[in-house]
Nucleic acid binder design. Structure first.
Lengths: 237, 237
DNA sequence: TTAAATGTTAATATTTGGTTAATGTATTAT
DNA sequence: ATAATACATTAACCAAATATTAACATTTAA
């Protein structure tokens, strides 16, 4: 499975942070570690996370402040605070900053894991409801990228594999424009190297085969740059 | 104001229970107090609550057992456990029984209040969508998901197990559309891992067997995503 | 004109799903 | 208490779907 949950961990104690990160990765989470509030916010802006785990006491920018900034950008993402303090005021402050849960250090890692699972579960439904666009028309084709169906006129839909589907969607979103190779590799393959690049070429070949049904739709290569999905406009009619 | 949030409080220490009830009522909650697990479950069945606060240690029926029974009836309602114990095993047991949060006695009432507010807030959206519908028609079948009866035309009803029932209901609510695997696992199994996933596959097989009676009803798989219950429209008539 | 990039097909590997049966677990009946 | 039962989970084995890699052909840009 590829769609592991992504966690942003912000912890200034590098030693502890690394251990916790390893532990979480061992439990099939993708973990990004930031070593202070500043860096945490930068990383948060750059990517999409399923959960944030924030240390409260950090130099430059404490956990509460970071949480508030995160809430301003994204009001949904679950937040768990880690803290050595267990003073009531701090707990209340945490909840006011939009915490979903609270954990006192030292804590049991198994308990943290349960909390993470509980929280991600109750949030996941909402996150799914986050409907983005999933229906597209391209030439005489129609793509339903939720069901992964590619339909040509009124024929039987062709079933696309996840990668075929993602790649075609990305091409369509760049219709008539360059879709950089690097973009597809980093977003869909999540890695950019010789082999993933070759793999992508294989998928381009597959898509071309499907798209042959409409001669006005073509995937062109821009050498060294990427691909371009063109739809010949029905001009000269 | 009429739409105050309703809390079911189950606590065998009558003194403490009464004090907590008063405190919550002072904060604009409608509180029903039950003094043991049995009574708690009776009251739960009779009414609709926005939140359950359960003491763990109670005679006759402990909080975990009660939580499980509540979960069988209603997988959505948030549950907070109260306990004097703070042993790791108990906390884990609580989360497995479907806890939304956990509070050790003695606790600060203000902290409890914050937790209640945080939990009710994040659930309130779902709660709106909380389907109270329990009768469905699908092809030539009729499902009564309260009695867990699946009836084909005028034959004897098949009795469904709780999981079969929940899963079929969720499929029907997504008729012709994708029902994400993850959704069923987090909502019905309350955990998303290899084994629950396999368990779900077993239940899909069971449902398919029941549904074979009507050849127009089918559960299709969308590889890596989930399942899709389709009803072939009776087109050519 | 040659190295790098791309096109294409096939072989291989990996992941996911279908199904049945065995095992575990809790509840109910005897 | 013990057996019967319902239900859920886990195991086992196989099949299908998907992804990667290899191999070789062709094109492109300096």
């Amino acid at each position: 499975m590829e769609n592991n949950k992504r966690i942003l961990l912000v912890e200034d104690d590098l030693n502890f942070g690394a251990v916790l990160k390893d532990y979480l990765m061992l439990n099939d989470f993708e973990v990004t570690l930031a070593k202070n509030g500043m860096e945490g916010f930068e990383k948060f802006k750059k990517d999409v996370y399923d959960l944030c785990i924030l240390d409260v006491m950090m130099p430059y920018k404490d956990g509460y402040t970071l949480a508030k900034e995160i809430r301003e950008k994204n009001s949904e993402v679950p937040i768990i605070f880690l803290t050595a303090k267990s003073m009531k005021e701090d707990v209340l402050k945490g909840y006011k900053a939009g915490a979903d849960d609270y954990l006192n250090k030292p804590f049991d890692s198994e308990v943290l894991l349960m909390k993470i699972k509980a929280i991600i579960q109750r949030k996941s439904a909402d996150t799914k409801a986050e409907q983005v666009q999933f229906e597209f028309n391209i030439g005489k084709f129609h793509l339903n990228s939720k069901l992964r169906f590619l339909t040509f006129q009124d024929e039987e839909p062709i079933k696309l594999s996840p990668k075929e589907n993602e790649l075609l969607k990305m091409l369509i979103l760049h219709e008539n424009d360059l879709m950089p190779r690097e973009l597809a590799l980093t977003k869909i393959w999540r890695d950019d190297n010789y082999f993933t690049s070759r793999s992508m070429d294989v998928y381009i070949a597959k898509l071309r085969k499907y798209l042959k049904a409409d001669e006005d739709v073509e995937i062109l290569n821009i050498h060294g740059e990427g691909f371009r999905l063109v739809v010949k406009s029905k001009v000269s009619e």
